[in-house]
Simulated scan of single mutants.
Amino acid sequence: MTIRRLTPKDLSAYRAIWAEGLMRVPTAFLFGAEEVRAIPNKDIEKALQTHLTFGAFDEASRIQGFISARRGGPRRMRHMADIGPLYVRDTAQGQGLGRALVEAMLQELARNGVLQAELCVDVENTRAQALYKSMGFHVFGRRPRSVLVDGGPRDDFLMIRALDETDLTRDA
């Protein structure tokens, strides 16, 4: 597998895997499928240029997974980044691809001066929680009704990891 930053040239592959993820695991995404379909290509191309999105590609150059992150906007929040979503195709799961994508993202964020990475994960997604915990993230809160999926409320755990060795668990 090859992991690299996605560019506007990857638009079709990115849209396809994003749509697949929305169909298979709608609770892992903030946007719904209809909302994603309504986003113009030019807006997604701009996001690929301004936000970090990495893709994992197999030997045949087919995308098998992706991860995104957005750095805090105001100067006072530029030390942190929000990670997500992370999605790996079923056929590529169990091969360490999710871990490799998260690690690549964390390394890039640290290289760019980000001090902490944060994410939200559905409280029922124990597999993703285990991955994140094994990579040094810890839960620092729970957001009730974080999203409504098909009209039903879903809670998220809020997770955080320091990228500079600071102990963020001291007050937890």
Rank of each mutant, 00 (worst) to 15 (best):
R5Q: 15
L6Y: 02
T7N: 01
P8S: 09
P8W: 05
D10A: 10
R15Q: 02
A16R: 15
A19R: 12
E20R: 02
L22R: 01
M23A: 14
P26T: 11
P26L: 09
P26I: 06
T27E: 15
T27I: 11
F31P: 00
E35I: 02
V36R: 01
R37N: 09
R37M: 01
R37G: 01
I39H: 01
P40H: 07
D43R: 13
D43S: 15
I44D: 06
K46Y: 04
A47Q: 06
A47C: 04
T50G: 06
T50D: 11
H51C: 07
T53D: 01
T53A: 09
A56W: 05
D58Y: 08
D58T: 02
E59V: 11
S61Q: 14
R62D: 12
R62S: 09
Q64T: 10
A69G: 11
R70D: 07
R71N: 10
R75H: 11
M77E: 05
H79F: 05
M80E: 12
A81N: 01
D82G: 00
P85M: 11
L86T: 03
D90Y: 03
D90E: 13
A92C: 10
A92S: 14
G96D: 05
E103L: 05
E103A: 14
M105P: 05
E108H: 10
E108Y: 09
L109A: 03
V114H: 05
A117Y: 10
A117C: 07
E118L: 13
C120V: 04
V121Y: 02
V123Q: 11
E124W: 09
R127E: 15
K133V: 11
M135R: 01
G136D: 04
G136R: 00
H138R: 13
V139G: 00
F140P: 01
G141V: 11
G141R: 14
R142H: 03
R142K: 15
R142V: 13
V147D: 02
D150L: 07
G151W: 09
P153V: 06
P153C: 10
R154V: 04
I160Q: 13
R161T: 12
D164F: 11
E165V: 07
E165F: 04
E165R: 12
L168S: 08
T169M: 03
D171M: 08
D171S: 08
D171A: 07
A172K: 12
A172E: 12
